[in-house]
Amino acid sequence: MGTLLKVQNLSVRFGERTVLENLSFELGRGEVLAIIGPNGSGKTVLLKALLRMVPSTGTISWAPGTQIGYVPQKIAPDRGLPLRVREVLEAKARMLGLDRSEVGKVAETAGLGRELLDAVAGLLSGGQFQKLLIAFALLGQPNVLLFDEPTASLDELSEERVYDLLHHLQTERGMTVILVSHDLSIVFRYATTVLCLSRGFTCAGPPKEVLTPAALETLYGATPKYYVHHGEPPQR
């Protein structure tokens, strides 16, 4: 398993405010990295820095040939926008120079049926819109997926489906996944590595080794309640 991502001394500052300081970590191919931490600890900023969407210092080295798919934190699209799901996906496909048939393929993988492809994007439910975002991220055959709180504001069933899909992409297609999550149960269940972010405190390693009650107390200021799944993740 080769190294896919190497981050060294990464710092992000917005004016006087330092959001990330001297962060270093590595990620191997096929791993699932969960980024956890309290609100305002810089989880989303880290994803955006990895995507080079915010200015940063230090080095971020992706392995040659890395294709990134990004699923942002919940988006509230304008409900009045006359944009069909198909039009959104086709726009990205054209920008990447992909064949139109790719849209059908990613829609199928993400569970977007034909009727949803013809729906107005702004009128989709939370779970349906999340599928659109996943299909959007899958266009261009990425080998790494960045998920920013992929199940925020979804009901339990939709949340389960999203994580099943994510697990499927990782196991069946060998995708590397980086996800920001507040849900420690999910982190224990799916992540191979965890990166904790909090002001002045970082930790990295396998969840069961790193996320000790003491570490969680330092991270969140209290020990959060969570459930550790001991079985294998469900097969899709």
Partner: peptide, 14 residues
């Protein structure tokens, strides 16, 4: 179109 649906997605797409 991408900037309409989400500036963030558009930016991530280049």
């Amino acid at each position: 179109v991408l900037s309409l649906i989400s500036p963030e997605l558009a930016s991530a797409t280049g």
